[in-house]
Design a protein around this nucleic acid. Sequence first.
DNA 1: AACTACTCCAACCGCCTTAAA
DNA 2: ATTTAAGGCGGTTGGAGTAGT
Length: 421
Amino acid sequence: MGRHSCCYKQKLRKGLWSPEEDEKLINHITKYGYGCWSSVPKLAGLQRCGKSCRLRWINYLRPDLKRGTFSLEEENLIIELHAVLGNKWSQIAARLPGRTDNEIKNLWNSSIKKKLRQKGIDPNTHKPLSEVENEEKVSAISKNNEKASEGSSELNFFEAHENSNYGIETEKPKPSSATTMDRYSNHMSAAVAPPTHEFFLNRFVNTHETSTTSCNKPLDLASYLSFQQLNYGSNIGLSMSPNTNHLLFNSNNPKNSEMVSHQFNSNMTTNDNILPSISNSILTSPIAAASNNSIGTFTSNGSSTSIDQLQRNSSFFDNNAFSWGAADCGKSEKEANIHPSETDPEDIKWSEYLHTQFLPGNSIHNHQITQELYSEKSGTQFATEGSLTWLQNQQQQPSLQTADLYNKHFQRIPDAFGQFS
DNA sequence: AACTACTCCAACCGCCTTAAA
DNA sequence: ATTTAAGGCGGTTGGAGTAGT
């Protein structure tokens, strides 16, 4: 039970994906989308399991991926989110536009962990290593009394911090010149021990999850999520909107929030116009809710990002906003064969959108994505490079043919999907 | 040049959850 | 209520690339 049937199938290719396979997958998704991953390999002519196709798309081929090295801000954000969420990579990734859970997980395991240890911080608990070692000794001694004292420490902590203004966000944003790890080091020596990530994980995740369906928890959420109140501070900030249950990723500059909200609403309006036939799907997504309620903004050190970007990683793409054939998943294989010409008039004629250059500003960006994808993994951020750079790089590319091949596809995909970046 | 050790990261594995039959 | 298929996620692995000897 629970195991993919494809896992049992033989003759399925494994290992690295070839450019040809990538092309097939891109081709298929460009044309039909990925309503049902299990049917994608067959329809796309791939000897892979659907799960593998999904992973390849999400982690590598998706057009909205930001490639290149992580910025310092991103690393700091990951550390701070990890302190709250723990190894919930997908949740962390949802707050880092253009980054995948896999990417973040790899960064954590290969780099950040090491850096934290060098700073004397235990990457698992986000406490000083010495403190963790002591705790281990103490816990071994007091193991016998564990049951009696179960839960009390957490309660004590909560009460203590409630009294010490951990609750409602009142503090002004702090300058973010110091890195998260630097601030960690400073705060670690404070008299009050920092909350463990388990504590915040329980409080945060539970409250956040229920907050999407219940109106009873906003105060709790605000209490636990005011990162700026945490003893290691924050350069991101989290708070609750007084009128909604949604998370607000505060900008250090309030104007950014307004600007982004405005931008966001504009974008949504534009998208609705451009892609009228998917507006229903979008409206049922969190993003649609955002367009109405102006729920969220997020910034990291001043570079503002709207919540639609934040949710792109998970909610947007996984929300069936682009699930052309989602309904086909439960149908027969024959029905799962999508033929655009036979679809309901209400359905999306993606091929039309895909070949329409309604967002001319994307073209260079798309080239850059392609360039990043099939050339070496450069450390540069394509978003900061100009078209000239791209053209120069393009001329220097040894694998020009491959790059061109993918240029074709990536030029089409983001155009069809709208202004994602 | 050859070998070894190490790092990075794409991809796989297995488990859990959810929805549909 | 049970079974099954599929999606999703976190942990782990294996191979390519790089640095060091």
